[in-house]
Simulated scan of single mutants.
Amino acid sequence: MEKKQLWIVIAGLVLVNCLTIVFFLSGSGEAGSKIFAGEQETVAKIGKETISRQEWLTEMEERYGEDTLRDLIDQKVIIQMADDYGIKVSDSAIERELNMLKAMYGSGEAGNEEKWKQEIKYNLLLEELLTKDANVTEADMKNFYEQNQTLYDVPASYHLSQIVVKTKGEAEQTVKELKQGSSFSALAMERSIDEFSAQKGGDLGFINVEDDSYLQNIEELVKGMENGEWTDPVETESGYAILMVHEKLKGKKYSFEEVKGQIRRQIALEQMDRPVSARAFWSETKVDWFYEEKEKR
């Protein structure tokens, strides 16, 4: 699980970098369009000084260019090699990994799910490529499952947002405004005293029912609610909270047959004791890239 968690963290950082660069270079969005009338190449003004679009993009390339290009190459390499070897991953395997990610690490927030699925797909294809010739016995896999069965139990989880205020009166007023059509995220940013979630419009990500660090009776509060509904004020240590449900994830215990492929890859990767990286296939796919000469120096 530690290796899997590390890979997810790395994949998340890679994804952020890739999306950032693509956004900047595509010219889409407000930041990529003309910011000041008549000054198409100016992206910022600071008093009498300006920052040109070229300066901005050059700085972005120097900071993130090599890593981002390497990540994009890795993605293409993985897809090409998977096609060459006829390797595919099922939607159910991707969904299982996503659910585990949500329940265990609070990730997979609304709006990012398709991006996470794509990253999970790349990860699974790469693991299949690296372990395609590995010999792992059925007995070893069953033994691993029996010893680590709880790793494949996904607890029920809820994607929640919150607004936390100091008094019950403030909480009741907030609920009243919500009923009148006010935006939950706007009210969270405006008045929630929990600064961390307030900055994200109250978004807490996924809270699993086994995590009692937030509220011990969380499942009792929200299990009967529909997506988009919010609770009445709930007293907490810091005041009163109003919780909104975005998504509910049912708990599930996965059988050996359902996770057999995952176990095979995990055992094989541990036996290989090598980085989970697409770089091993660069020569096979004849990669020629911008930073190649720099690496040779």
Score class of each variant (00 low, 15 high):
M1C: 04
K4D: 08
W7Y: 07
N17S: 13
T20H: 03
F23R: 15
F23C: 06
F23Y: 14
K34S: 10
I35M: 13
F36E: 01
F36G: 00
G38N: 08
V43R: 09
V43D: 02
A44L: 09
I46Y: 14
K48H: 11
T50P: 06
E55Y: 01
E61L: 11
E62V: 07
Y64R: 09
I73A: 01
V77L: 11
I79V: 14
G86F: 10
I87V: 08
S90C: 01
E95L: 11
M100K: 06
L101Q: 03
A103N: 08
S107W: 10
G111R: 10
G111I: 06
E113H: 05
Q118C: 08
I120S: 07
L126H: 06
E127V: 02
E127Q: 15
E128A: 00
N135G: 01
A139N: 11
D153S: 02
S161I: 06
V165N: 03
Q173V: 00
K176I: 02
K176W: 03
K179F: 11
G181L: 05
S182Q: 13
S182A: 15
S185Y: 03
A188H: 08
R191A: 00
I193N: 12
Q199R: 15
G202L: 08
Q216R: 10
N217M: 11
I218N: 10
V222E: 03
M225W: 05
T231S: 11
Y240I: 07
H246Y: 13
K248D: 02
L249M: 05
L249G: 10
I263Y: 11
R265L: 00
I267W: 01
L269T: 02
R274M: 13
E284N: 05
E284H: 04
F290I: 10
E292H: 08
E293A: 08
